[in-house]
Design a protein around this nucleic acid. Structure first.
Lengths: 227, 227
DNA sequence: GGATGTGAAAAGGTTCACAGCC
DNA sequence: GGCTGTGAACCTTTTCACATCC
């Protein structure tokens, strides 16, 4: 769902724009596999092996990588460290990206403590909540700030991405506050379709949706017959 | 370690002639919108309006619904209650589906307490953990059972779907236990690619992946403005 | 008049298969 | 010999537009 511009050709300067969304969505998986290979001391991988680790086909992996300026060596494979750096750069992770978590309830706290955040190239730089009972407590190593301070504190802390982990009724106003503060990327865990300006990117993770999809497939198998 | 490579395992399963995966993935959204319309007293909706609520095009909505035996009325629209029931049935939610959560840490507890579970047609029927310190405590209104009892207790409780909310190193063995107990649908929150038999459906939700995708899009936009 | 349902066309992704380089 | 990179075929999904029915 990336905007399509057909006019001037800036592909030479910026291939990023034209990379299909499904490709972007697979890159983090490749990156993770590369990290684990590197941790195991491996220096190169073949497309076949890397694809196997990520549960995709080797052809699709090679084509995905062709979108970035990754250089594999024919007859050898890909350099783990080099490819990892390349993907990280493509994802905008060649510098640490700071994130803020809105909502310091159970889910927000769990996300704040998730060790993978730092390992993935991010830094938790703020935790916010509206409830006075939570403000001031410590979550994820940070003191919870009142939601009213979001704009000020996110600017101070250099927060670029917001994670919304509040109850459904509060999600839209949390998003509004984030947008007003200049945030342009939102990861939404609340079961609500957020309305934001086109310049803001939203990704939506919903437990109920995932379970329902799973329910369909398991039920379909049992039924064996579809309508 | 067995490495499943070779074939195109991407096909994720199911006999195919059924409804396309992207369609299945959008149905929960339609369902949620229909519930909220119904809660507001509305009895019918047009494809245009419903699509607007779900942030999709009206044409795609109509085609999606054409896959199920949904009956809209030309000139009128769709019957909210009828369509909701239809989608629910299609998703296998005409009966309550019981789920078990593996991992009673912060994330598992947060998921267990998520009120939307029941509202979406599910019932939490078991919470499991390996740690003796957690076993016996109460999470989501249930007493946490030892992981070793998973097979027995999931059979007793009629659990059909498992949610894996354990640390990465424990995820594969949790999945193995679930599969051994006859579970055929797994929602995996651990940052690991699970290896399961083809008959088992896995959906993967990963915070780091989502943030990295978001990082790409926000970074790309920033790069663009520099030009 | 109004809105659905659906052929047909377009767009987008995936897979194949092999040329080309190591 | 091995493995990447990619044109071309293939398949899937989206979009358009309008006949069809209420």
């Amino acid at each position: 769902m990336v905007e399509t511009v057909s006019g001037p050709d800036l592909s030479a300067a910026l291939p990023a724009r034209s990379v299909p969304a499904p490709v972007v969505a697979r890159l983090p998986g490749y990156l993770q596999a590369l990290e684990s290979l590197r941790a195991g001391g491996r220096s190169t991988v073949s497309s076949e092996e890397l694809a196997g680790m990520c549960a995709v086909g080797s052809a699709i992996l090679r084509r995905d990588l062709s979108h970035l300026s990754a250089a594999g060596r024919r007859g050898v494979g890909y350099d783990c460290a080099g490819l990892a750096a390349n993907i990280r750069s493509f994802l905008g992770l060649d510098r640490v990206r700071r994130i803020g978590i809105i909502g310091a309830g159970r889910l927000g706290s769990a996300l704040a403590d998730y060790a993978g955040i730092a390992a993935s190239g991010f830094a938790l730089a703020g935790v916010f909540d509206t409830s006075p009972r939570v403000v001031g407590t410590s979550v994820g190593g940070l003191t919870v700030s009142p939601m009213g301070d979001f704009a000020e504190r996110s600017a101070e802390a250099g927060i670029e991405l917001a994670v919304i982990a509040v109850p459904a009724p509060a999600a839209q106003s949390a998003a509004d506050a984030a947008v007003a503060a200049g945030i342009r990327g939102i990861l939404n865990f609340a079961p609500v379709v957020l309305t934001v300006p086109p310049a803001v990117h939203v990704r939506h993770v919903d437990l109920a949706t995932e379970l329902q999809v799973l329910a369909h497939y398991t039920a379909a198998e049992a039924r064996e017959q579809q309508q």
